[in-house]
Write a protein that binds this DNA or RNA. Structure first.
Lengths: 209, 209
DNA sequence: TAATTTGTTAACAGTTTTGTTAATAAAAGA
DNA sequence: TCTTTTATTAACAAAACTGTTAACAAATTA
């Protein structure tokens, strides 16, 4: 009677993503994932042999999304450096705003199981190398035009990522401390984005000596 | 024959701290803690009835350290605001540098078990309220002297914490991406501290319009 | 030194969680 | 339609952990 709908696999994946993002690998329970997906937990082992394998799937996806998010950022080369940088900050911020749990997820998993380095290492490092080289080139050019202060590309990238990502990571603690509900407070995030842009812009503006 | 040395309790606590900081509550194993402490795991239940209770001890301690660390920061009121702010950044950075795993530990636990909010809430919120009020007062004064640009105390505090804390949180990922070993690289952290101070100083300097 | 409290071990009990299997139903292919 | 492959369930096995207990040793105290 009931049609065999292979979207069960998708349903399981969705439930697993929720569970893993929320609780991390160690906190996640395969039974709980199955329950939330509305299937018996044997199904989960049928589609994905082990918890580990199911996790890998999710982990890969999220690396993809994060890397993609940062990738898009540095493509246009027409406009002046500061302008491009402001746009990059904006885009980067919005990507995280739409996937606010990804960064903590990634950091937490890499921290508690460094073995997973291997997976992530290739994906990121090849990409990050390119990005940094490109950025450094553009920076040097802008510096020689006296358009901006000197800064190292790695330093600038870490400035950017720290400012854009950290607020989302610390959100639960921040909410506990202040009693605010930041989900219901889009103004807070708009202000935050502007502040981050402001900080980097001022950092890049040549000092008047 | 063997003397009853009650430093076993301390040994267990030390091993537990290691384990919890490294793997988080869910990833920690009481058997592993006992093994690392060199005692049978029954001992662990003898001194600390449950895993949860053992965790509470550690959790409280770390909240204490973190809050203390930020507390010390804003006491002197003689010097100009920017100067004080630079010192605060320096002290704050060094506190974290010496306890680099505490922030991720706290964030991770609060994220995966919001129930623990209750504990942390009182400690932080009462304190944070004071700090923010003090900061805002000092900021307003410095602004009216045209000593600095206008900024919200909450915003400035989040700037500061983001810049100082995030690099330590993202360290494992960063190392995976770049292949560097940041533990062996004290220069990296010195540069980072300077960059953070630079960023905030420029943010606070009144813009010349 | 006798009694009591404190520390320690080993073995075990209970639970939770992951993973397997055998039986069966549905779908697809021939 | 008969066979084979895929999907699904329920029941079960195995492992991993946490927590308990009973027996005993060492230290403390009276």
């Amino acid at each position: 009677m009931t049609k065999h709908q292979n979207n069960k696999e998708q349903t399981i994946l969705a439930a697993a993503k929720e569970e893993f993002l929320d609780k991390g690998y160690d906190g996640a329970r395969t039974t709980s994932i199955a329950r939330n997906a509305g299937v018996t937990h044997a199904m989960l082992h049928y589609y994905f042999k082990t918890k580990e394998q199911l996790f890998e799937r999710i982990f890969h996806e999220t690396i993809g999304m994060l890397v993609e998010g940062i990738l898009e950022v540095f493509t246009q080369t027409e406009k002046p450096f500061k302008e491009r940088m402001a746009e990059a900050l904006d885009i980067h911020f919005e990507v995280i705003r739409q996937n606010p749990r990804l960064p903590l997820f990634m950091i937490r998993e890499v921290a508690s199981r460094p073995e997973r380095f291997a997976v992530i290492k290739n994906v990121i490092s090849s990409f990050a190398g390119n990005l940094l080289a490109t950025m450094q080139h553009d920076i040097d050019q802008a510096v020689s035009n006296s358009e901006i202060s000197h800064i190292d590309a790695t330093t600038l990238l870490l400035d950017m990522v720290s400012l854009n990502v950290f607020p989302f990571i610390v959100k639960p603690v921040f909410e506990a401390a202040t009693g605010l509900d930041l989900n219901a407070d889009s103004k807070f995030w708009d202000i935050r984005k502007q502040e981050n842009i402001e900080l980097i812009m001022r950092r890049l503006t040549p000092s008047q000596t």
